[in-house]
Amino acid sequence: MEKDLLHNKEYDLVSVIYNASQAADTCRQYMQDVQGDQECESFFNNVIDTNAQLVQKGKDLLKNRL
């Protein structure tokens, strides 16, 4: 059996990085819809920050494994 060029864990990290990045981008778009609603703005900002942290952590983990 041919060895995979990208192991499952690396693929999984890339997938999480991608999805967290997409979630942050989507919430940035949603921010336009909730302008003036402080509670929703705070929520979406929290989602953006959390996903940005996940993206960075995932990138660090991936860099150390490639």
Rank of each mutant, 00 (worst) to 15 (best):
L61V: 05
I48M: 00
Q56W: 09
Q38L: 09
D25I: 14
L54I: 13
E41Y: 07
V47G: 02
Q32D: 07
Y11T: 05
D25L: 15
L13N: 02
A24M: 03
G58I: 03
A24Q: 01
L5F: 15
Q53G: 05
N8C: 09
E41A: 06
M31Q: 12
L6S: 03
E2C: 08
A24W: 02
V47R: 01
L61G: 02
D37F: 08
A24T: 00
D60L: 03
L66P: 05
L5A: 10
E41P: 03
L61M: 10
N8G: 05
M1V: 15
D4N: 10
Q22L: 09
V34D: 01
N64L: 08
T50A: 15
N51R: 00
D60R: 00
M31E: 04
C27D: 08
N51V: 00
R65T: 06
A20L: 05
A52H: 08
R65M: 09
N51F: 01
F44M: 04
Q22C: 03
L61P: 02
K59Y: 07
S42L: 11
Q38G: 10
D12N: 15
M1L: 15
Y30N: 00
Q53V: 06
Q38I: 08
Q32E: 08
Q35Y: 11
S42W: 12
K63S: 06
L61W: 09
A20I: 04
Y11A: 09
D25S: 12
G58K: 03
V55R: 02
S21T: 13
V16I: 14
F44Y: 11
A52L: 13
G36W: 03
V34S: 00
F44P: 00
Q56E: 12
L13Y: 05
K57R: 09
E2T: 13
D37R: 10
Y30K: 01
N19T: 11
C40K: 15
D12R: 14
T26P: 04
S15A: 11
Q29L: 13
T26K: 11
